[in-house]
Amino acid sequence: MNNVWNKPFICIALAAVLCVCACAAPASPEELRDDSGNAITITPPAERIISLAPANTEIVYALGLENKLVGVTEFCNYPPAAKDKPRVGGFSTVDIEKAVALQPDLVLAAEKHNKSVTPQLQKMGFRVVSLYPSSLQGVIQDITLVGRLCGADTEAATLTADLQKRIDAVTAITGGLDSDKRPRTLVVIWNDPLIVAGASTLIGDIIREAGGNNVALQVSGFSSMNLESIVSADPQVIIVPTSMDQQGDPLWEFITTDPRMSGTSAVRNSRLYRIDGDMIYRHSPRCITALEQIASFLHPDLFSKPAQ
């Protein structure tokens, strides 16, 4: 008789509540988590930011928040203006005293700090958010997150929409490629010992989205790989990240001149490419440029060379 569902008002109210829950749930402060799985609080918007990783610095600049950035690392070199910000130490060697003295209300950390700097700062009551996405979508989410933490949601929305459009432009072409059209690809990051980018790395995700088949999927993260396994996997494309401040490059020399690499398809067909390491290692907006470049390396017939 008194069926609840017959009362339009209750139905509408319930629907509204559900709708609000559905939309607002991820936005409610208690629900948000960073890449280390720690819950984070959004309010109040950050005014004094310390970045403990070059990629985090790049994100802050890309969102136009550089005036709020009070501390960076010695390795933060992009954009060049970041070099003039106060330094709080190296990557893993953070000068805690200096960081505390800068009185940040938001510290953007990375995976490296999980066991040391992050808990230390958290114990002292600082808000630490760890960013280390392992996929392009994770990068987009982290940019959104930083925007939200700093009251720059609109800027973040504009930036991520633009980045997503560029990702879609690549995956629209590479998404449908059959596995035999995806060249066997290897990203080598060190030669002594040989260390490659394996599964669950941002680089691995970039290779996949760019239409390649990472031959190092058997190893996880950045891991050493047997020379024997590399030779027998016979990569068709080898990509070597380079550091801008490096003149001679022992890794590039090894790949191009070592007689044992000369039998691989990549070397025989001269499909060896260099890419700016800062672009491919860092989960910054620039990794989308890396995606476009690598897509053009892997499929020169499908992509014209992307604008720098």
Partner: peptide, 23 residues
């Protein structure tokens, strides 16, 4: 090693001993 920070890839392997690039 502490001050070298980002360049430590190879050092750890070297210190523990490896023949990975024997030629």
């Amino acid at each position: 090693i502490i001050v070298s920070d980002e360049k430590v890839h190879g050092i750890v392997f070297w210190l523990l001993g490896t023949f990975s690039l024997a030629d």
